[in-house]
Design a protein around this nucleic acid. Sequence first.
DNA 1: CACAGGGGTGGTAGCGCGATCAATGGAGTG
DNA 2: CACTCCATTGATCGCGCTACCACCCCTGTG
Lengths: 344, 344
Amino acid sequence: MERTGKPTINDVARIAGVSKKTVSRVINRSPLLNGDTRAKVEQVISELGYVPNVQARALALRRNFLIGLIHDNPNAQMVMNVQAGMLEAMRDTEFELIVRPIDRGSSTMLEDVRNFLERQRLYGVMFLPPVSENEMVAELCRELGIRYVRMGSATLDASEHMVASNDCDVVTEAVNHLISLGHRRIGLIAGPHGFRSARERRKGFENALEGAGIKLPRSLIADGNYTFETGLAAADRLLDLSPRPTAIFASNDEMAAATLHAARRRGMSVPEDLSIVGFDDTAIASHIWPPLTTVHWPIISMARSAALKLLADFFGDDGNAVEEPSLFPSTLIHRASVAPPREG
Amino acid sequence: MERTGKPTINDVARIAGVSKKTVSRVINRSPLLNGDTRAKVEQVISELGYVPNVQARALALRRNFLIGLIHDNPNAQMVMNVQAGMLEAMRDTEFELIVRPIDRGSSTMLEDVRNFLERQRLYGVMFLPPVSENEMVAELCRELGIRYVRMGSATLDASEHMVASNDCDVVTEAVNHLISLGHRRIGLIAGPHGFRSARERRKGFENALEGAGIKLPRSLIADGNYTFETGLAAADRLLDLSPRPTAIFASNDEMAAATLHAARRRGMSVPEDLSIVGFDDTAIASHIWPPLTTVHWPIISMARSAALKLLADFFGDDGNAVEEPSLFPSTLIHRASVAPPREG
DNA sequence: CACAGGGGTGGTAGCGCGATCAATGGAGTG
DNA sequence: CACTCCATTGATCGCGCTACCACCCCTGTG
């Protein structure tokens, strides 16, 4: 009897004249099943418009089909790219994505993550930087016995739990490019303290200057928070310097865009008066004028790969257990925001 | 006995020496419960670290705590803003957000949505434009008996299912502003056919010109797809015209940013050689230089309100059954991309 | 012809929780 | 002091599905 709503497996079994276990076998594509029986059950299923109840299934299987994304990243484009990459990997599977932003800096952050993970009993979770760099969350996942993958700018965990890029080296390459053009006074807009990516990018910057024998005054390093607003303040501080830097490396595109904004607001030309290099290669880098020379961070591929790692032991049986890569090289993209300094 | 993992309600009941129904009462804050019993059970719960199983709960309640977001919007910033607004409304509730992008234009789009809704049995779904403008999806939700709210640029449904803005009028206001500054050759970069928002914005544009007695040559209308790339192509087409338009209204900020990009690429100054007006007031509008005069579309408020509508009959008991507004006025934001035309 | 073997199927017991309804015990009343 | 009443509590069933194990029947073999 159809009580309130959807037909259940019992309805299908009764109408098809088989046991519900047989229906279950049809749903789960059990190999040992008579073809006729299968056809008959499938017939009834489609007539009734029967759809299995995912909650009941999850309860019985003691496992659900939800992948979580935990992030506290201020960059919208970045988060969307990650979602896009993950969803690409999850396409045509029965997995769904559940998104959970958390409040960085909140004292209850770790508690919040714990509550979320304990309540939802997800199949797996993925962590975006910067929260992914927090060793506590990895610890938490291990304690709770939940699959996880972290994204980051340096390897922090075993390869099956980590998808990383090599920010340090590629920043060195970018800054070397500036140096080779003749720049000597190069400013840095650093990312927030405590972010691994910020430290890596800063280290890459310092390595380049050191390699060229350039002594870096502290004043040429300004702190930002990976947001446009903090980037603007940092850029203004650097551009107030006298003499001014002839080039600025911003630790992400948001802050690079802010640097461009600050420069143009005070009537400077880019790249004639100031060369700018960003990091991430998000949409804004190519949308603004002049388009930014920046480091392409393969975030979508990384996210796709991370999601596939999460799903690996689910689809492992199918034989497509290809080892997903863990290290994704970033590459320098030359666009129009860099030129030799005016007085070289 | 703790078999594989988490303690269950039975463990709590056994250890606390009460029935599991009593534990259930504690969890669900039933009022008729002896204080001592409650304290004892809560004690055991915290000692065991017991967390109720959401799947089992969902099965027994025949209802879960998941809100879906279905979208096919190409603008990342927009989608993130919507997620932010929804999550704000869902903060400190037990509801979680599950995100489902769909492939616009795919022939199986409606089937995909149906499968998703039937399988997940969500508490409610929210639709973003443009898919929200598709009457079929609303029909589908009604057929499946699932709560839904649509976001859009014009009222298309009963107010409890709709959160809308008034794009038409505010665009008229924006274009009137251009006209009052002396602009006569004003170009339009329209949104894609079939998008309600695109039609509304275009109508607002045409109303303003008509009101001023300006005859609009077809050539001054270029088609875009709400993406940067199509905006760039459209802007190039308009700027190739002779005589050129002195101002361009782009139907969203992405395309407005592309217009600025196109203008600057050919050495034009903005706003001296070309005034630009956008729509949405997403981050890029204030990040580029010059910052865009644009229409602020209160997307975050709309999304928050939409989510609250979805949750209304869940929290309705608490007395805070405030009627959520359905219409959100957009407002014109004056920034630096608009000036009088050169030869006035 | 009796029996072993195996593909195909059903019965039934959970998974963890909520809900109905009856039962219990103590306080209040005549 | 017996009885009623109300505040608490528990036994049991059901939510929809999967899993373990037993069972059936048909074929093949000694």
